[in-house]
């Protein structure tokens, strides 16, 4: 039920108003609960945890990438996004352990690239590489050290 006042304002009826305020309060409650206790799983009411961690001054910063040898004889970094090989870097980083155990999972990266870029050189060998940058007193110390975690000869 809405009520129109003498100034022409449209006011809410008692029930409509109560329900709305209640919904807003429940929403705030869910958001607080998410921030205090929940994880990203509770989206959209999870914690706003992007870039929320305190990185120590002597941290080793890791960065995972995939390097590819192509049938044109070149070595390139695989573009880890949807337009590139169809997988995001976050997915690769989240699944590093699985890929190390079973490098054949890298096949889908080569397939994704070949499907999205049929006219570009194909990947013949893929390497999952972890670059580690060492911080000393909060500063970057020297170039990153690279470590090959998994190797996969691409199936045709």
């Amino acid at each position: 039920m809405t009520v129109v006042t003498s100034q022409g304002d449209v006011r809410l009826g008692r029930a409509g108003k109560s329900v709305r305020v209640l919904v807003a309060l429940v929403g705030i409650g869910l958001l607080i609960n998410g921030s205090v206790r929940a994880s990203d799983d509770a989206w959209p009411f999870g914690p706003m945890s992007q870039y929320a961690m305190s990185v120590p001054d002597d941290a080793a910063i890791t960065y995972t990438r995939i390097s590819a040898q192509t049938d044109a004889g070149t070595t390139v970094d695989v573009p880890l996004n949807i337009e590139g090989a169809g997988v995001a870097r976050a997915e690769i980083e989240a699944r590093t352990g699985e890929i190390v155990k079973d490098p054949s999972l890298l096949q889908q990266v080569a397939d994704g690239w070949a499907r999205k870029h049929p006219d570009k050189p194909k990947y013949v060998k893929l390497e999952l590489i972890r670059d580690t940058t060492q911080l000393v007193h909060g500063r970057v110390e020297g170039p990153p050290a690279s470590e090959v975690l998994a190797t996969w000869a691409v199936r045709r």
Binding site: V36, P47, M53, S54, P56, D57, A59, L135, G138
Partner: peptide, 16 residues
């Protein structure tokens, strides 16, 4: 919260 309910984030190397 991520720092165990402490204010360490602004002095950390997070942006680096």
């Amino acid at each position: 919260r991520s720092a165990g309910w402490a204010l360490t984030w602004p002095r950390s190397a997070v942006l680096t």
